[in-house]
Each structure stands twice: as structure tokens, then as C-alpha cells.
């Protein structure tokens, strides 16, 4: 370990400022008593929040996002849990190819996934709406969920499961009594983070929603009209606070009961 390096410390702090300051402008201007987002601030008001609350379309969009997010996070976490177990527990032929295939949706440009799902959906004669959006989100969230769960399961002492089987528990009992309690913090973290990814996702929703807007779609539609911007700022501020809270909760859960060694930070990068 080196001792001190003030130049690097100052640089790092400036970098933090670069990361955080842009995001903080949304909450700041959401309380500003003006329609334009410029300095100097003209006065404190909560009317943008009242205006936001009065929009019925927004309520509809919020509900749509919650439905999609809950289904996408539960399904992708379930699928990812099985897959993570396979990669953490077994060595098998085709391991790298399978891993790569499951990771692809996270790696390729989202617009390509959106277009591909759009083409098949229309060809099958189905109606656009929240169903194809949910399907896209499940596909997109599964690799994230798998990374989080592999990080949790890796290093898990599988002899505990074997011992349970030897002592006469069946597969379900073993899962319920032995594995699940140990995986649980990872599972909840994965559910929360998948929900947030789905909740904030825009491109897939943009191509696949048709007329049922999700919350990001609603915001996108409002952003074009300068007079409607202030209530989007208020909505944005609320979403930022909510997201930050959920993500911090997920990070905290993920590291619960993990040794210092393993307490890395969610996304494990495989080479």
C-alpha cells in the first residue's frame, strides 16, 4: 500500500462531482418556482409535485411499470437462480458457451433486442403492449440477476446440501431448509435490482409498448413539451430518491453474512 497521494485524491473527488452533480440538478430544479431550468433559482415551491400528483396518465403509467417490474424481476431471478447454481456448482462441457449465450442480452445493443422482439411479435400477429415489454425485460434482467446470484453462491459449501440429502431430506426440503436461507440475501438483492432495471428501462418499452405507456415512456412523451417539464423534474426527483433507496438496500443485503473477501460489489466480471 502506498501512503498518500493528494493529487489523485483531488482528482477522485472531482470525478465523484462529475458523477453526482448532473443527477442532483433534477431535484434542485424540481423545487424551483419557474418553468425554465436556469440560474439563478427563483424561489421555492412544491407546486410541481402537486401538479405531478394530479396527472391521471402518470398513475396509469406507474401502475404499468410496477406490474412489468414485479413480473420481470420474479421470473428473471427464478431463472437466474437455477442457472447460477449450475455455474457455481458444476463443471461441464459447453459451460462457456452457455454462459456466453445467457449473457448476450446484457451485452448487445438494446435496440437490436427490441427490434428482434418487435419483428417476431408482429409476425406472429400479436398485439404490442405490456406482455412483449415484460418478455424483453425478463431477457434483459436475467444476466444481471445471474451475476449477482453467482457472486453469492460461489464459494458456498455444497457439502451442506449433500449432508442434508444423506440425512434423509428430499430435494425440496434441502432447498427450503438449507440452500434458501443461505441464498436469500442474494435472491432479495437480485429481485430488487432487477425490478429497478425494469422500472427504468426505456428502449425495449419504446419499441414494444404500443399504447400502454410505462413510466419512462410517459416521461419521454412529456419531455418534448417545455411547459410540461417541471412536473417531469418532480417525477424524476421522486424516482431518483426511490431508486437510490432500493439500490442501497440491495447492496446492503447482498453483503449480509459475506466475508470481507467476497464483499465485492455486485457485478462480477468474468474474463
Amino acid at each position: 500500500m502506498e501512503q498518500k497521494n493528494n493529487t489523485l485524491l483531488i482528482y477522485t473527488l472531482l470525478y465523484f462531482a462529475f458523477l453526482y452533480i448532473p443527477v442532483l440538478f433534477l431535484p434542485i430544479f424540481s423545487f424551483n418556482d419557474a418553468n425554465y431550468m436556469s440560474f439563478p433559482l427563483s424561489g421555492f415551491t412544491t407546486e410541481h409535485y402537486e401538479e405531478m400528483w394530479a396527472k391521471t396518465n402518470l398513475h396509469k403509467a406507474l401502475w404499468a411499470s410496477i406490474k412489468v417490474g414485479v413480473v420481470a424481476s420474479v421470473v428473471s431471478t427464478t431463472i437466474a437462480l437455477f442457472a447460477a447454481k449450475a455455474f457455481a456448482r458444476y463443471k461441464f462441457r459447453g459451460q462457456n458457451i452457455s454462459y456466453g449465450a445467457i449473457m448476450i442480452p446484457f451485452l448487445i445493443p438494446e435496440i437490436i433486442l427490441a427490434v428482434a422482439i418487435l419483428v417476431i411479435w408482429l409476425s406472429l400477429g400479436f398485439k404490442l403492449g405490456l406482455v412483449p415489454v415484460t418478455l424483453g425485460h425478463i431477457l434483459f434482467c436475467t444476466p444481471f440477476a445471474m451475476l449477482i446470484l453467482i457472486a453469492r453462491i460461489e464459494g458456498f459449501d455444497f457439502s451442506l446440501e449433500e449432508a442434508s440429502r444423506d440425512l434423509g431430506e428430499n430435494a425440496w426440503g434441502t432447498f427450503y431448509r438449507v440452500s434458501l436461507p443461505l441464498y436469500l440475501p442474494g435472491i432479495i438483492a437480485s429481485l430488487l435490482l432487477s425490478f429497478i432495471i425494469s422500472f427504468d428501462e426505456f428502449v425495449l418499452a419504446f419499441f414494444l409498448t404500443g399504447s400502454d405507456a410505462t413510466l419512462p415512456m410517459y416521461m419521454w412523451a412529456q419531455m418534448r413539451f417545455i411547459q410540461k417539464l417541471p412536473h417531469v423534474l418532480a417525477l424524476g426527483a421522486v424516482i431518483i430518491v426511490f431508486t437510490t433507496f432500493i439500490v442501497l438496500l440491495a447492496f446492503w443485503l447482498r453483503n449480509l453474512g459475506q466475508g470481507k473477501e467476497k464483499a465485492e460489489f455486485g457485478i462480477k466480471i468474468h474474463e
Binding site: V23, D200, T244
Partner: peptide, 14 residues
Amino acid sequence: WTSYLLRVFSWKII
């Protein structure tokens, strides 16, 4: 982790 759309939007404000 905060919405991509909102991060892009905040640069529009800046």
C-alpha cells in the same frame, strides 16, 4: 442505477 433516461435528461438541463 438511477434511470438512464433521467441521467441523459439532466445533461439536457446542463
